[in-house]
Design a protein around this nucleic acid. Structure first.
Lengths: 205, 205
DNA sequence: ATTTGCACTAACAAGTTTGTTAGACAAAAA
DNA sequence: TTTTTGTCTAACAAACTTGTTAGTGCAAAT
């Protein structure tokens, strides 16, 4: 367990992360991961035994990453709308910085039922906490009459719907608007603010 | 070119459509398509030469189907908000009746650049027409001050973002809300109306 | 009646991909 | 010094997948 050992194992894991995120489980070849990690593909089996095993580790990490991204901002001294604005913007930025993440998870979950179990085990408890942390704030606002009655699920769904679409459908949108990557980045920034506006509107009583 | 011939070719195409939509290009095996069509997989190559060829036909059909679903309703004698309400609801219903369609196209476009060309060739001209048909109505409303200034792209993007998410992320959402299929259908119906409400809100000046 | 053309199957060929294994090599332990 | 331990490669094996082909059988044309 010296440096070298850890390095190879970690190199394989890092390479696997990149390739799986890029191409998905089905089209990823173990040899490609090995090549990117700078070793023979026998090493991949030596450390992780099967492609599926390696994939599961990557997938679990990514589900955790995505689920934890929903933990909202520090709320002390902020109004509810302020909190929502910041949270929506942060979520958008997170998705933007991890462009491959949402399409990856959506695709893998739709393609292999076994991945649903992983989602259940990892994401469900995290989301339960997220919902819990929001529900009190919302209830208070609803009682005050400052927002319309609504479940935290609906609010979160509105946010996620609006925020992931520009990335999940990126190739489609780029073509329809025939824009370059740079121009698309400008559109993304505008869309972020539009999304914040829409979410705040959706809360109006 | 008697009945039988046409039938086999069509049977393969129908089977291919089902299997490709269910599993995507990468994980679909030509043998599975053939089996579902009730013939040897040699027939598949006899009629379509390659798996890729067959896939392209299916993919083109599905892109056309999706793109045409955006053609809006008959506008005569209806207010702009009426038209929008109906169009959003119809679009939601269309996506619901073709649950696999949106995830399929999104996934294939993200996984294979060649499919982007198909998208460009087929979807782009259709969308140009859709945008054209909307833009006049919107301009008129904007001048009247009844809706806020906004490009038809932004409006369509809002609609599509909200409408496809419940289907693209269906397995994830079912688990998070731990609901059965039936219960999820109820949620879907509620969501449709919420989406209509949101789109109308987004147009407010 | 014979030939031609077409749909079709069974068997095969080639290539790819995952996974295994025998053994090399080096470092640490004995 | 010898043994052991763990990492690593090259070569191989097995399975699968796509695509081809030789040949069968039938219907229409000649």
């Amino acid at each position: 367990m010296n440096e070298k050992d850890l390095n190879t194992e970690q190199n394989i894991l890092n390479a696997a992360e990149q390739v799986f995120l890029e191409k998905g489980f089905a089209t990823t070849k173990t040899t490609e991961i090995a090549k990117k990690a700078g070793v023979t593909h026998a090493m991949l089996h030596y450390y992780f035994r099967t492609k599926e095993n390696l994939f599961n580790i990557v997938f679990q990490n990514k589900v955790r990453l995505l689920a934890n991204s929903f933990f909202s901002v520090d709320v002390t001294g902020k109004s509810f709308t302020e909190v929502v604005s910041i949270a929506v913007g942060r979520h958008f930025d997170f998705i933007k910085e991890n462009r491959k993440l949402a399409p990856f998870i959506i695709n893998e979950i739709n393609n292999n039922e076994k991945n649903s179990e992983t989602w259940q085990e990892i994401a469900q408890p995290i989301f339960a906490k997220v919902a819990e942390s929001i529900i009190d704030m919302m209830d208070a606002e609803i009682k005050k009459g400052t927002i319309r009655p609504m479940s935290p699920f609906d609010l979160i769904q509105t946010v996620v719907s609006l925020n992931i679409f520009p990335f999940v459908a990126q190739p489609l949108l780029k073509i329809l608007r025939h824009v370059t990557d740079e121009e698309y980045n400008v559109i993304l920034e505008q869309r972020k603010h539009e999304n914040i506006r829409l979410v705040l509107l959706s809360l109006q009583p």
